[in-house]
Amino acid sequence: MALKAKVKDRMIPLSNYSTVSKDATLEEAVMALRGSFCELDSQSCTEAGHRTILAMDERGNLAGILDFASILRTLVPEVAGDWYQRLSSAGVSTAFAEANAEGLDETHLDLYERVRKNARVKVRDIMLKVRGTIEADASLMDALKKIFKNRISKLPVMENGKLAGVLRDTDLFLAVAEILEEKS
């Protein structure tokens, strides 16, 4: 029965999902995302939070999405960035070093300073494109197909043209798991 349910029965409603304006800074996005992991009062953090945050435009429409990888690539590019980011930053370091001004090179900054500086970038400059959405009254089976076809882990759910929630691969896993549970 599980997979025949509708997406809207299993999705996380938008009100329960982390969102941020696309014009906000990465720092604000990270704090918002962290909020889904950590209780405000007790500051105890669990692993039960959401792994992505949605970027919204001024009219409340979905503009993009940020996940851990894209966030870390931006915050610590010297570790998480790809090879040409590292080559480019080596070239920049050379320029400052050869001018006897290597202290000005930003890769010489303290790690904390670098992360704080990198966090000032706007969400819209680094957010990932949304690679697929699903209608709220589509079946979970359709959602499952879409998630694997587009190789994503989160499906934004649309209802009447507006963003209504998010369906995660976790939710689909739980739905499939129910099939095995039902048998017993």
């Binding site: 080559l87 480019s88 930053s89 070239g91 920049v92 050379t94 320029a95 050869e98 930003e106």
Partner: peptide
């Protein structure tokens, strides 16, 4: 070539 290697990064960073 040294300048070409450093140029893009320096321009993008607006330095």
């Amino acid at each position: 070539s040294g300048a070409l290697a450093a140029g893009p990064g320096l321009l993008k960073a607006n330095l």
